[in-house]
Design a protein around this nucleic acid. Structure first.
Length: 828
RNA sequence: GCGGGUGUGGCGGAAUUGGCAGACGCGCAGGAUUUAGGUUCCUGUGUCUUCGGACGUGAGAGUUCAAGUCUCUCCACCCGCACCA
C-alpha cells in the first residue's frame, strides 16, 4: 500500500526497483553485453570463471554471493576494455536427480532440465554477466561423450584401470565413494557412516601425478589462498623414509615395510600387519592362531569407521605366532595383526619401534612388549609412557651409535642398500581416484566386458555411449548399477571378437565431469574434439576462478590432475588450469549455516522480492572481504537499497546535458570524482570490493552536497561525478546503474560504457594536511603544499603557535620530518 | 597432535612502505520536512574525563622519534588433516 503512496510522492521516491528491473532485463537480453569475442579481437583476453552450480533446485543465498563476486571481477574487466570470457553451465549429473526420481517418480533427466531452466532464468534476472551463448550441461550426451573419450585416452595409457580392493561404501546411497568423499568417516553427501566393501572398481591413476601435483603448487603460490594449498599438500601427504625388507620365518618372500624413521631400526621390538590385509590372513593361516585371528578380524570389521578414527582408542591386536627377522641384527620380532596399521597405506605392514613412536609404545604397553631406546634422551619412554621423537645421538644401534638422526638415516639406508634389504623411499597419502559409481545418472563407462577378450574399449566412432532412458529401470539403490538391468542396453557384441559381451554397468563419479568443463566452454558445440587446442591456447589458463572453499581438495585437485593428463596427451601447453583462485565465504544466518532443519533458512527469492536484485548483490559485496563469511542477520539489505536510491536520485537531479565539458566544472568535485575512480579500481583489483563500494558512497555524499548546497545540479563536474558513479556501480548494481545511465541521457548498456579515464592531475593533491606531533602525539595540523621540502616543512611546523608554545624555549632534541604528511618533534 | 587462519566501537568492517586508529555502512540518539512515516535531509555517536586532557586495536614484553602493522611469549576462537608408520 505504501508503494502507491510513494508513486504519488513526487520525484523523491521514484526509485521503483521492480519496474527498473522489468525495464532493463529485456534490453540486455537483446544487447548481449557479455558475449566474449570469438576471433580477431585485439582486446586482451581474460578468462573469469565461476564454479558451475549443481541444479538441485532454484538458486540460493550462497549462489547469490558467489555470482555477485565473480560478476564484479568480470564486469570490471569488461569496463577496462578486456575481451572477457565469463561462462556458466551446469554440473548436471549426480545423485539428487536420481533420489528425486525415486521419491517422486519423475525422470531424472526431466527433473534436472527443469531445474536448469529455473536456475537459468534466475541467473538472468540476477543480472549475471555471463556469455549466454556458451552454456553447457554435463548431462548432455554432447558433453559426456568427451568424458568417455578422455577416459579411453587414459585407459590407453594405463591411467584408467580396474582393480579389486576394499573400498568406501555408503549404505544409504548404495554406492562406492572416493577417499575424498569420506568426511570424518561419514558420507560427504548424506552423513551416513561409511563402511568397507571389497569390490572391483575403476580407478584413475592420480598417484602417478602426486609429485607433480605437489611441485606445481609453486606456480600457484601467490594466486591461490594459502589455506587451499596447504590442504592439498596435506592431502597428498608426501613423506620420505625407507622401505625395509623383513624375512618372515616360514615365508618365501620377505615382507617390505615403509618407515620414515629407518634410523630406529635397531629399536624395533615387534612387527605389525594390518588386520584386514591379505598378508595378515596369509600369515595367520597354519600358524595355530587362526581362530583368534578370525575372531579379531570379525571384531575389527564391526568397528565403524568413526570409532576407528578416534585417536585415543585402546590398542588391540592378536599375536600371529610368527616371527619376522630384523635385517640388521637378525633379531626375531613377534608378528602381530592389528587395526592400528592401515592396509592401504605403505605396504600394510610396519616395524614397530615403541621407544620412538607413540602408537607402537601404546601397543607395546598394552601387550607387555619390550621397549628399547635407540635415540638417547633424558626421558625414558617406558616410564613416562611418552615416545620420544626428538633428535639425539643414537645408542644400542651398532654402526649408527653416536650419529644424529639425519646422519643415521643416511647411514642405515646405505647399509640396507648394500645388503639388498632396503632402499630410500617416498610415500604418499594420496590414493588412486576411484571413479566407478553404481548409480544411473552419470556418464556410462565406455568399456565392454567380453568373456574372451576382457576389457575392451568402446571404439571412438561409437561414442557417446548414451544412457538408456530411465523409464522401466529400477533406480532404487541396491548395490549394483541400474544400468546392468537394462538388458537391451547392456548386451552388445564385442568390438574385438564379435562375440556376446556386456557393457560396463557403472557410471563415472561426477567429479570427472567438472575436471575439465572449463575447457569445454571455449567451444561447447565442438563435435570433433572436447575443445580446440587453438582456443585453449588463447584463453587458458583461467585468469580468475571463483568458488567455495568446499572444493578445496576434491574438485580442484582433480581438475589439476586432468589438466596435467591433457598436457601429457599434447592437448594443452599449460600444466595448471587456474592461475588465481578466490574462495568466497559462506552466507550464514544467526551464526550458523542455513538449513531447513535448523529453521534459519533465508530464501533468496524472498530477499530479492523485498529489496531487489541490486540491493541483495550490493549487500553481498559490501558486507566485508569476499573470503569472509557473511551473517545475513548482521548486514542490511535495506541499507543497501537506501544507498542505491540515493545514488539513483543524483542521476535525476543532474541538469547539464550529456557531453557537457567537465573541464568547465568545479575543481573540488572533479578531484573527488577522479580519486574515487582511481581508488575503486585499485580496490577491485585487490579484491577489496567492500572498500570500492565505500569509496563510491563517499563520492555520492560529496555529489549530494554539491547539488544541494554547493555548485548546484548544472555544474558539469557534477555530471562527470554521477556518470562515474553509474559506471562503478554497474559492477555491483547493474539495474540501478543502467537506469542512472539512461537518466543521464545515455544509451544502454552502461556495462560497456568503459571505465572512466583517471586524470592524474586531479588525483594528485596540491595541498595536504600535515600532522605535527610532539613525542608522537598529534598537536597541530598544517595545510602544506604537496611538494613542500623537508626543511621548509620543519620550519613551518616549529613556527606553528601551538607547537611553539608546547615545545618551549629550548631547542628540540630531535625533529623527524616526513614531508609532506608528518612532523614529529622531540623536545629537548 | 600437525598444518592454516583470525582477534580493531553496540554490529559488519576500513587503515600501500611502521606515520592522524575506527573510513564506509548498520544500529542508536536528537533535530528538520511531513496529517502520517519502514521517506528524505541535517547533526551526533570508541571509552573515561576535573573538559585541560587521559586512555584505547585479545594479554604481556621488546624494537622505534613513531607499532593495529615488526620481533618474542602467552591466551581465545575458527578451519583443515589426523593411528599415514
Amino acid at each position: 500500500m505504501w508503494r502507491t503512496f510513494m508513486a504519488e510522492d513526487g520525484d523523491r521516491a521514484d526509485f521503483d526497483v521492480a519496474s527498473i528491473q522489468d525495464r532493463w532485463l529485456p534490453v540486455w537480453e537483446a544487447l548481449r553485453p557479455f558475449r566474449a569475442s570469438e576471433s580477431d579481437d585485439q582486446r586482451e583476453r581474460m578468462y573469469v570463471l565461476d564454479m558451475f552450480p549443481y541444479p538441485s533446485g532454484d538458486l540460493h543465498m550462497g549462489h547469490a554471493e558467489a555470482y555477485a563476486l565473480g560478476d564484479v571481477v568480470a564486469r570490471y574487466w569488461v569496463q577496462r576494455g578486456r575481451n572477457v570470457l565469463h561462462p556458466i553451465g551446469w554440473d548436471a549429473f549426480g545423485l539428487p536427480a536420481e533420489n528425486a526420481a525415486i521419491k517422486r517418480g519423475v525422470d531424472p533427466a526431466a527433473w534436472t532440465y527443469d531445474n536448469i531452466a529455473a536456475q537459468k532464468a534466475s541467473m538472468k534476472r540476477y543480472a549475471c554477466a555471463f556469455d549466454w551463448t556458451r552454456t553447457l550441461n554435463t548431462c548432455d550426451p554432447d558433453y559426456y561423450k568427451w568424458n568417455q573419450w578422455i577416459f579411453l585416452k587414459m585407459f590407453e595409457r594405463g591411467l584408467a584401470y580396474r582393480k579389486a580392493s576394499s573400498v568406501n561404501w555408503c549404505p544409504t546411497d548404495q554406492t562406492v565413494l572416493a577417499n575424498e568423499q569420506v568426511i570424518q568417516g561419514l558420507c560427504e553427501r548424506c552423513d551416513t557412516p561409511v563402511t568397507k566393501k571389497k569390490l572391483t572398481q575403476w580407478y584413475l591413476r592420480i598417484t602417478d601425478y602426486a609429485e607433480r601435483l605437489l611441485d606445481d603448487m609453486d606456480q600457484l603460490e601467490s594466486g591461490w589462498p594459502e589455506k587451499v594449498l596447504s590442504m592439498q599438500r596435506n592431502w597428498i601427504g608426501k613423506s620420505t623414509g625407507a622401505n625395509v625388507d623383513f624375512v618372515i620365518e616360514g615365508r618365501e618372500e620377505p615382507v617390505t615395510v615403509y618407515t620414515t624413521r629407518p634410523d630406529t631400526l635397531f629399536g624395533a621390538t615387534f612387527f605389525v600387519v594390518a588386520a584386514d590385509s591379505d598378508l595378515a590372513a596369509e600369515l595367520a593361516a597354519g600358524s595355530g592362531a587362526e581362530e583368534e585371528f578370525e575372531q579379531y578380524l570379525e571384531q575389527v570389521k564391526l568397528t565403524s569407521e568413526i570409532d576407528r578414527l578416534a585417536t585415543d582408542r585402546e590398542k588391540t591386536g592378536v599375536f600371529l605366532n610368527r616371527y619376522a627377522v630384523n635385517p640388521v641384527n637378525g633379531e626375531r620380532l613377534p608378528v602381530w595383526a592389528s587395526d592400528y596399521v592401515l592396509a592401504d597405506y605403505g605396504t600394510g605392514a610396519i616395524m614397530a619401534v615403541p621407544a620412538h613412536d607413540q602408537r607402537d609404545l601404546d601397543f607395546a604397553k598394552a601387550f607387555g612388549i619390550p621397549v628399547r631406546v635407540v635415540v638417547a634422551s633424558d626421558e625414558d619412554p617406558e616410564q613416562t609412557g611418552m615416545a620420544t621423537a626428538d633428535d639425539g645421538p643414537h645408542v644400542n644401534s651398532g654402526p649408527l651409535d653416536g650419529l644424529d638422526k639425519e646422519a643415521a638415516i643416511a647411514a642405515i639406508i646405505e647399509i640396507l642398500a648394500e645388503r639388498g634389504t632396503g632402499e630410500a623411499a617416498v610415500n604418499y597419502r594420496l590414493r588412486d581416484w576411484l571413479i566407478s559409481r553404481q548409480r544411473y545418472w552419470g556418464t556410462p563407462i565406455p568399456i565392454i566386458h567380453c568373456p574372451s577378450c576382457g576389457e575392451v574399449p568402446v571404439p571412438e566412432a561409437e561414442l557417446p555411449v548414451v544412457l538408456p532412458p530411465a523409464s522401466g529401470l529400477d533406480l532404487q539403490p541396491k548395490g549394483s548399477s541400474p544400468l546392468g538391468a537394462a538388458a537391451a542396453w547392456s548386451a552388445v557384441t564385442c568390438p574385438s571378437c564379435g562375440g556376446g559381451a556386456s557393457r560396463d554397468p557403472d557410471t563415472m563419479d561426477t567429479f570427472v565431469d567438472s575436471s575439465w568443463y572449463f575447457l569445454r566452454y571455449l567451444d561447447p558445440a565442438n563435435t570433433d574434439a572436447p575443445f580446440s587446442r587453438e582456443d585453449a591456447e588463447k584463453w587458458l589458463p583461467v585468469d580468475q576462478y571463483v568458488g567455495g572453499v568446499t572444493h578445496a581438495i576434491l574438485h580442484l585437485l582433480y581438475a589439476r590432475f586432468f589438466t596435467k593428463v591433457l598436457h601429457d596427451l599434447g592437448m594443452v601447453s599449460f600444466t595448471e588450469p587456474f592461475t588465481r583462485l578466490l574462495n568466497q565465504g559462506m552466507v550464514l544466518m544467526d551464526g550458523s549455516a542455513m538449513s531447513k532443519s535448523r529453521g534459519n533458512l533465508v530464501k533468496l527469492s524472498d530477499e530479492l522480492a523485498d529489496h531487489g536484485v541490486d540491493a541483495v548483490r550490493l549487500t553481498m559485496v559490501f558486507a566485508g572481504p569476499p573470503e569472509d563469511d557473511i551473517d545475513w542477520s548482521e548486514v542490511s539489505a535495506a541499507g543497501a537499497k537506501r544507498f542505491l536510491a540515493r545514488a539513483w536520485r543524483l542521476s535525476r537531479d543532474v541538469t547539464s546535458s550529456p557531453g557537457a565539458d567537465p573541464a568547465q566544472g568545479d575543481l573540488a568535485v572533479r578531484q573527488a570524482t577522479h580519486r574515487t575512480i582511481a581508488e575503486a579500481a585499485t580496490a577491485v583489483e585487490r579484491f577489496r570490493f567492500n572498500v570500492a563500494i565505500a569509496k563510491v558512497m563517499e563520492l555520492v555524499n560529496v555529489l549530494r552536497k554539491a547539488i544541494d548546497s554547493g555548485v548546484g545540479p548544472a555544474d558539469p563536474a557534477v555530471r562527470e561525478g554521477v556518470e562515474a558513479t553509474a559506471i562503478i556501480l554497474s559492477l555491483v548494481a547493474p539495474y540501478t546503474a543502467e537506469d542512472m545511465w539512461a537518466n543521464l541521457g545515455h544509451n544502454p548498456p552502461v556495462a560497456r560504457a568503459g571505465w572512466p579515464e583517471v586524470i592524474d592531475d586531479l588525483v594528485r593533491q596540491e595541498t595536504v594536511t600535515c600532522v605535527v606531533q610532539i613525542k608522537g602525539k598529534v598537536r597541530a595540523r598544517l595545510e602544506v603544499p604537496a611538494d613542500v621540502t623537508q626543511a621548509e616543512l620543519e620550519r613551518l611546523a616549529l613556527a606553528d603557535d601551538t607547537i611553539a608554545r608546547l615545545v618551549g624555549e629550548a631547542p628540540p632534541r630531535r625533529v623527524i620530518v616526513r614531508a609532506p604528511k608528518l612532523v614529529n618533534v622531540i623536545p629537548g
